[in-house]
């Protein structure tokens, strides 16, 4: 099998989103523990803006993916192929579920999300403390899941690159040539 590489758009979106997530995630953990202060209010807003940006990027990415199938996978044992596919699917799910849970959480807590301070997102649920606490826990659990999945995802990518020395990682970069 001579698998091709991902399209340039898919590659660009993959790394852009990885970058955004590697910013939003630690920011979320850090701000969560801060005592209430103007800085905390600012960081919460930045985190929410970043998160909604990720949601939009995820929508663009999914649309692109549906119209531009991924190249066939590099040769690998069946279980690894299934695992890799499974993780990719779950990652796509989380790329939507996490920001959506954040958006709903903010509405339930009575703090509307206004993207970059200009675009108000509708509050899809009314203010409700119990629901807010529940969605906060959901947001946290989903993020914990993301942490595990991305960990496995990166470990897999690095194993392909350094152990099997195949093209898996390279075909997700612009430098890949066949």
């Amino acid at each position: 099998m001579t698998p091709g590489r991902y399209t340039r758009t898919a590659i660009a979106l993959h790394w852009l989103m990885a970058l955004l997530i590697f910013s939003a995630f630690p920011l979320g953990v850090y701000m969560h523990d801060l005592p209430l202060s103007p800085t905390k209010l600012q960081l919460f807003s930045y985190h929410k803006w970043l998160g909604i940006t990720i949601l939009l990027a995820a929508a663009a990415r999914l649309a692109w993916r549906i119209t531009h199938p991924a190249p066939a996978m590099v040769d690998m044992p069946r279980w690894q192929r299934i695992a890799a596919h499974g993780i990719h699917h779950l990652l796509y799910v989380l790329l939507f579920a996490i920001p959506l849970s954040g958006w709903l959480m903010s509405s339930a807590k009575g703090f509307q999300t206004v993207w970059f301070g200009v675009l108000p997102l509708p509050d899809l649920v009314g203010k409700n403390k119990e629901l807010g606490d529940l969605l906060t826990e959901l947001h946290q659990s989903l993020n914990f899941g993301l942490l595990l999945l991305v960990g496995a995802h990166i470990a897999g990518a690095l194993k392909h690159h350094f152990v099997e020395r195949d093209d898996t990682l390279r075909r997700m970069t612009f430098r890949y040539k066949r």
Binding site: L41, S45, G110, F111, Q112, T113, V114, G117, P120, K127
Partner: peptide
Amino acid sequence: KQMGVSVD
């Protein structure tokens, strides 16, 4: 108004 967002 907190970060430009109205809070009740």
